[in-house]
């Protein structure tokens, strides 16, 4: 399980996180919603140790994020970045098998390639794509390669940062279904951040609303429409009027 207690993070005078409390149970899928610039990505980066919080505690299975072997800690995670974050200089299969070609999880090259091709197939890409370079792929294909990379080492915990941003509705639906299938199939714990309400309903077991640096509401996705929280209501219905300022 992942737990955040009173997490604060500021960049200069900009206080992004102002005491985030969040609990994600093992094997469940949490989707964090909230407006642009509310610190959703920063929160994920704090959990991964990419950004150090100014105050508060983040634990994964009871262990503090910054304690112990950080490489071993990160080996438990997979992450799909918003823009894919594929390495331009490497062919697709080496992107997918990146973790399997070096470090503690290193496998023989042929085996790593085989696993990469299998993961590509899992996300609906043909083996022909394996030797292409990321720049030769469409946005949707890059996202799928990013997804294949995130699951290549079969992580216990997967993060998805805006998995459907920039995709057409059909491709977004494909990605949402893939994420749901993969998370269910692997039994992984997942945290996704998104603005896309279709994604929320497709991916989430639970939903948390982040606004003004704190979690305003959290609960099962089934309760989302009847949350009674004015922030959640305004956000999910996309209204300009409400407690969330339209101009930020």
């Amino acid at each position: 399980m992942i737990e955040l207690r009173g997490v604060h993070k500021a960049f200069g005078t900009n206080r992004v996180l102002r005491g985030v409390d969040l609990f994600v149970a093992r094997g469940t899928s949490m989707v964090v919603i909230g407006g642009s610039g509310t610190g959703k990505s920063v929160m994920l980066k704090c959990i991964l140790g990419l950004v150090e919080p100014d105050a508060g505690e983040i634990t994964v299975d009871g262990t503090e994020v910054h304690e112990g072997d950080h490489d071993a800690f990160l080996a438990r995670f997979g992450m799909l970045f918003q823009g894919g974050a594929l390495f331009d200089s490497l062919p697709v299969w080496q992107n997918v098998a990146f973790r399997l070609l070096r470090g503690a999880l290193k496998r023989p090259k042929a085996e790593a390639r085989e696993i990469a091709v299998e993961k590509l197939r899992r996300v609906g890409l043909s083996p022909d794509v394996a030797d292409s370079y990321p720049a030769e792929l469409s946005g949707g294909m890059q996202k799928r390669v990013g997804l294949a990379r995130a699951i290549a080492a079969e992580p216990e915990i997967i993060f998805f940062d805006e998995p459907t941003t920039g995709l057409d509705p059909i491709m977004a639906g494909v990605i949402n279904d893939l994420i749901r299938e993969i998370v269910t199939e692997m039994g992984a714990t997942a945290i996704a951040i998104t603005h896309d309400m279709t994604s929320v309903r497709a991916i989430a077991d639970n939903v948390a609303m982040l606004h003004d640096g704190v979690i305003k509401w959290t609960g099962p996705v089934a309760d989302l429409d009847a949350s009674g929280d004015p922030y959640v209501d305004q956000f999910i219905h996309g209204r300009a009027e409400g407690p969330i300022a339209a101009v930020r």
Binding site: K45, L48, G49, L50, D71, L74, A75, F77, G78, M79, F81, A85, L86, F87, D88, F98, R99, G103, A104, L105, R149
Partner: peptide, 9 residues
């Protein structure tokens, strides 16, 4: 991509 490198240990 630098963040991605870190998450890939």
């Amino acid at each position: 991509q630098i963040d991605a490198l870190v998450t890939l240990s």
